[in-house]
Design a protein around this nucleic acid. Structure first.
Lengths: 194, 194
DNA sequence: CCGCTCATGTAACTGGTTACATGATTTA
DNA sequence: TAAATCATGTAACCAGTTACATGAGCGG
């Protein structure tokens, strides 16, 4: 059974093939969120292992004196990537993300009441920062280029909005008011009743 | 600088003090999501380290022949927990969760078109499963008991709803239709036409 | 030709997991 | 009294990080 990182590497190679391990590294590093740093010590041994197991195939780049290797997915590699995406999916608990913000809120009562709002305010600032980033990425390249790239950024935006709504509810509790719903959207009057 | 797991241990001890390391372990294990397994090999050395560094204090339990130790937060420990919750927060990228569902969707195009819906359907099933769990937990104990416990479950529910909305948008794309907004809430006559 | 990026690699370390071992206490 | 649970611990292992080293190719 391959790890999520290994599967993600297969995925990236599938997207960018033929590409070097270095390119895969860069893809991970440029990603704003991912908890994978794409460090050399992680990727190179991993890629070699995937090749050894027949999931990746490699070729030298023509006219390159370096040890540069261009990778692509083998038949087995594609099958592995597909199997990862096919039912049965991992158990429900493994599908939901461990939210570092939520963990903190769990212990927010440890802070003196006055300081709690400061936490929420800064969290909101940082989340909004990420939100405009994610939304601009979602807009960019919504052409046929890579539909799923835009879509995942859209997913990030939705997640961030949910976190902002959460912050709002926490704030309502912290400041002792009843939970009145306010919109997370900029300027939008969009709201579902409960 | 303490790791998130160490901080979470401080938090749990703060909540449940006086409590054993074993109780902390169980708290992590019972948690449906957390990527921390609360394994013995992780917790016991960690707790001993926290005590050595003066963040935790311990005492024997009266009339217990075992090596049972009851832990509580020291002054320094409480200060550390608070510092963790106080600005400056970690950089924006560290606040957002790495979503295993979104990673998969990034590579969904690797699946033959027919199989994509199967993925989305199973994901939806599992997410809804988690959602009813989170929402019942959020309702349970909304008294003064532990306000923040209920609140974090509410946060989980919001995150799950966002994921469900995401799945819906992906489905719209996969099945080639334009993105029309539908409610994620239960009770709706929600159904996708196929 | 100098410096930047491309490209690969390894060694030392860290933090967590699994799996096991031990024994006291509680409960059926 | 047997089984389950409480409670602590350790050893072997694994995956990923940091930090370093090396060198080819390329743009100014």
């Amino acid at each position: 059974m391959l790890s999520d990182l290994e599967q993600a590497v297969l995925g990236v190679v599938w997207l960018e093939a033929p590409c070097t391990a270095y390119a895969v590294r860069m893809t991970f590093q440029k990603s704003p969120s991912s908890h994978w740093s794409g460090s050399a010590g992680a990727i190179y041994p991993l890629v070699r292992r995937l090749e050894r197991d027949g999931l990746l195939a490699s070729a030298r780049r023509a006219g390159d004196g370096r040890a540069t290797r261009l990778y692509r997915l083998s038949k087995t590699g594609l099958a592995a990537l597909r199997a990862w995406l096919r039912p049965p999916l991992p158990p429900a608990g493994a599908l939901i993300a461990a939210d570092p913000l939520r963990v903190r809120v769990r212990f927010l009562a440890a802070l003196p009441p006055g300081a709690r709002l400061a936490f929420l305010d800064e969290a909101e600032t940082k989340l909004r920062e990420m939100l405009i980033l994610a939304e601009s990425e979602a807009r960019r390249g919504r052409g046929a280029d890579d539909l799923y790239r835009a879509l995942t950024h859209r997913g990030a935006a939705l997640a961030l909005r949910a976190q902002l709504e959460f912050i709002d509810e926490v704030r309502a509790t912290v400041s002792g008011r009843a939970t009145e719903r306010r919109s997370v959207n900029r300027g939008g009057a969009r709201r579902r009743g409960r």
